[in-house]
Design a protein around this nucleic acid. Sequence first.
DNA 1: TTGCAACACGTACAAATGTAATTGTACGCT
DNA 2: AGCGTACAATTACATTTGTACGTGTTGCAA
Lengths: 134, 134
Amino acid sequence: MVDRPALSKGEMAVARALWDVSPATVRQVHEKVEEHEAMSFVTVQTYLRRLEAKGHASSRLDGRVRIYSGRSRPGTVIRSTVNELVDRLFGGDSLPLVRHLIEERGIDESGLAELRQLIERLESEQSQTERKSS
Amino acid sequence: MVDRPALSKGEMAVARALWDVSPATVRQVHEKVEEHEAMSFVTVQTYLRRLEAKGHASSRLDGRVRIYSGRSRPGTVIRSTVNELVDRLFGGDSLPLVRHLIEERGIDESGLAELRQLIERLESEQSQTERKSS
DNA sequence: TTGCAACACGTACAAATGTAATTGTACGCT
DNA sequence: AGCGTACAATTACATTTGTACGTGTTGCAA
């Protein structure tokens, strides 16, 4: 539950790659990162080290190769990052952001359908549970 | 449409305050900022200067007091910040973020109702306009 | 007219971030 | 045995961010 300091841009890119391929060697992570953007191998090395220092990854030596594994799960990191953003941009109120996302960035049909169902579910839940404060 | 570099945490706090009170003196902005968090007066001054350097604010001297005004509108800054976040966290797909926001952070009844209507509107629009790819 | 409170403006500086180059070392090929 | 290659580990360094201090100036109160 500790809200570790949010990951920076570069750290996040590497963390995302690591989540995808973990456990993996630096090289494998590097390859994954490069599917999206150019970044030197050693830079990835650095980020992985920093991620480990911050507790978001762990590693062990397998022979002469270091194997990194994701540690904090994506959901956790994403949650705190998003929370921070919502606080910063909207003073904690997430509705404007949701509105913005739905309006400004395309969401396809199936996405919309999913969201509608999600909202309907929440609405029925809310009408049952007599809303007890915010 | 230039996607200026996203504002940092501190810059964003000051920018938000400025948007609220603009045009305003440093002192007024400072007071607004302090409604949410403690920050030294001179620090606010610095941030305002940096915001101006980045083109997010403008200022003029009124007598011996400098008056700052917001320049880029909130929507613009918010858009690029959010875009960057979505790219970083979800590789550009905004649906997961929306899902996360709706599920994890409470949205009240009226908010839900608004969202449902928004989604229904988009759904009907989409079924009319034969989707012509992104 | 003198000093102070209030402010602008320049300067400072450590930590975090982005991005590597270098150096050391072991593996396997020739 | 010697060499290139693939890594790990160390070190580097410019930029950005967070946070502020000090210095100079000026309108105002005494």
